[in-house]
C-alpha cells in the first residue's frame, strides 16, 4: 500500500474540516495509507514568517518538511498557500545552501535535520500524476453525469513555477483540474478568467470590500461565459472565497445568483461514494441540486 503524508495546514482542519474528511475518504478509496504528520504546524502563511525574513520562513517550513522526511513519505496538501510556502521554502534552501545551513543550525537545537528529500504535492497534481486519470476513473461510483464545472486551480498551485516539482504545460491555460473533472464524468470548459485571483488571503484581510469586488468580477465572468452547475477548487483559500465569500455577497445583496462551490477532494470523494452530507457539511451555498445530479448518474 502506497503511503502519503497528509499536510493539513490551518484553514482545512479549522475552517473547513469537511474538506479534511473528504480528503481522508478519497485517499483511502484510492488505496493510499495516510501517514499522520504529528506536530505539523502552519506552512507558514505568507503574511507571517515569510514577511519577517527568509531564514525564519525556511526554518518554520523545514519543521514541517522534516516530519515527513523522518517518516519517509511525500506530502500532499489541499491548500494552495501551503503548497506555495512549503515549496518556495524548499526551493530557496535548494538554491541557497547557506540558508539551508542556517536552518539546520536552528533545527539542531531540537534534534532535527532537514535533508531536502521530501516532495510536496497539491491534490491536482497528485490526482493527475501519482494516481492518474485512468485509476481515478476506475474508482468512480457515481459518475458526475455531465455536471458542468467551472474550475479554479488557484494562483499558488501555478506560480512561481520554478519552485514547483511539477506543473501545467501552460500555467496561463491550466487544464489538469478540468481533465480531472471530465475524467469523473463532468464537463469542464475553459473560461477567460480561469487564472484570475479569487481575492482571498492578504487582500481579503487588508481590503475586504475590494477583495470581494474582485471576486465578484471573476464570478460574473464565470456565470456569463459558462453558467456552471458548480465551481471546483484546487485550493482551500479559494474555497473560502467561492463559498463563504459568495454567501457574504449574496447577503449584502451584491449578487443575485448562487453557484455552489466544492474543493476537488470533496467532489471526488462524493463521486467515490462518500456521504455528501459529511463531505460538504460546512458549505454556505446550498448544494442540493448538485448532489441530486451526481446521484442520478452511475
Amino acid at each position: 500500500m502506497k503511503k502519503i503524508g497528509f499536510f493539513l495546514g490551518c484553514n482545512i482542519p479549522f475552517n473547513r474540516p469537511d474538506v479534511e474528511y473528504s480528503a481522508r475518504y478519497l485517499l483511502n478509496e484510492l488505496g493510499y495509507e495516510i501517514v499522520e504528520l504529528e506536530g505539523a504546524t502552519c506552512c507558514p502563511a505568507f503574511g507571517t514568517m515569510p514577511s519577517l525574513d527568509l531564514v525564519g520562513w525556511a526554518a518554520a517550513s523545514a519543521w514541517n518538511l522534516t516530519i515527513a522526511e523522518e517518516k519517509g513519505v511525500d506530502i500532499v496538501t489541499g491548500c494552495g498557500s501551503c503548497y506555495g510556502s512549503l515549496n518556495e521554502a524548499r526551493h530557496h534552501m535548494e538554491k541557497h545552501p547557506e540558508v539551508k545551513e542556517q536552518v539546520n543550525k536552528i533545527l539542531s537545537k531540537v534534534g532535527k535535520e532537514y535533508k531536502g528529500t521530501v516532495k510536496v504535492w497539491n491534490f491536482i497534481n497528485f490526482l493527475y500524476e501519482d494516481v492518474g486519470l485512468e485509476k481515478l476513473k476506475s474508482k468512480i461510483k457515481h459518475n458526475l453525469n455531465g455536471l458542468k464545472c467551472a474550475v479554479q486551480t488557484g494562483c499558488h498551485n501555478l506560480w512561481p513555477s520554478k519552485a514547483y516539482p511539477t506543473n501545467e504545460d501552460n500555467t496561463f491555460f491550466p487544464t489538469r483540474l478540468r481533465e480531472i473533472c471530465e475524467a469523473m464524468g463532468g464537463v469542464a470548459p475553459h473560461y477567460s478568467t480561469i487564472t484570475d485571483c479569487c481575492g482571498m488571503g492578504a487582500l481579503r484581510s487588508t481590503a475586504s470590500e475590494k477583495s470581494l469586488n474582485l471576486f465578484k468580477k471573476k464570478l460574473d465572468v464565470i456565470k456569463e461565459e459558462i453558467d456552471p452547475d458548480i465551481t471546483v477548487m484546487g485550493c482551500s483559500s479559494c474555497l473560502l472565497q467561492f463559498d463563504a465569500g459568495q454567501a457574504l455577497l449574496v447577503e449584502q445583496k451584491k449578487l443575485n445568483y448562487k453557484i455552489p462551490a466544492l474543493h476537488i477532494v470533496q467532489l471526488a470523494a462524493i463521486a467515490m461514494g462518500a456521504d455528501p452530507e459529511k463531505a460538504t457539511v460546512l458549505a454556505s451555498i446550498p448544494l442540493n441540486g448538485v448532489i441530486t445530479k451526481i446521484k442520478g448518474g452511475n
Binding site: L8, P13, F14, Y21
Partner: peptide, 27 residues
C-alpha cells in the same frame, strides 16, 4: 502553531465526523 486559529473549530470538526482536534501541533 497555526496562524489561522478560528474559534469554534471543535464543533465544525465534529459536524464533519472528525476528532475535536487535528493531529497537528495543537494536539
Amino acid at each position: 502553531g497555526h496562524a489561522v486559529y478560528p474559534k469554534g473549530y471543535e464543533e465544525r470538526r465534529k459536524k464533519a465526523g472528525l476528532p475535536e482536534k487535528p493531529p497537528t501541533a495543537i494536539s
